[in-house]
């Protein structure tokens, strides 16, 4: 697969499901270890061309969040957005499933869903398919 084909494939399905757990595709620089999600062609840190594909852990921690009340007409409001930190030292923005207000420091896991976007597409198509939801054990794991 060429890098262009790989990039296209990742846009279509930017995750894998393993044993019921959803893991995001990301790119790691084999030279300096920097991680990008989504992946990119060249590592910004060291200039290395060609990142190796990795799957992020299925769980992360909410770094910050908001509830969006006004958006563009393609989205139903209100909806929650979070930046989620992963152990692989990468931060990813994802919409949160459910109505509950997110909290900084809370543990979350990736689930599949249509998200806030008003689309007819199947949930597993496109980057907007990803969401986060609370883990059973993650509630109230402190602030900041």
């Amino acid at each position: 697969m060429t890098s262009m084909e790989a990039a296209t494939a990742m846009m279509k399905r930017p995750y894998e499901v393993e044993g019921g757990l959803v893991r995001l595709r990301a790119g790691r620089c084999p030279e300096c270890g920097a991680v990008y999600c989504p992946a990119r062609l060249v590592c910004d840190g060291c200039g290395h061309r060609g990142l190796e594909e990795i799957l992020l852990a299925p769980r992360g921690t909410i770094y910050t969040f908001t509830t969006v009340h006004q958006s563009t007409p393609e989205f139903r409001t209100p909806y929650h957005l979070c930046y989620v930190d992963f152990d692989e030292q990468v931060r990813v923005m994802l919409p949160a499933a459910g109505d509950e207000r997110p909290r900084i420091g809370e543990a979350v896991e990736i689930v599949l869903g249509t998200g806030p976007r008003l689309v007819d597409a199947e949930p597993e198509e496109g980057p907007h398919a990803l969401m986060v939801a609370w883990t059973a054990t993650g509630k109230g794991e402190g602030d900041v």
Binding site: L81, R117, P127
Partner: peptide
């Protein structure tokens, strides 16, 4: 990608 997931500038 973030815009497709619902990111706005106010957000």
């Amino acid at each position: 990608v973030e815009a497709q997931r619902g990111l706005t500038m106010p957000a």
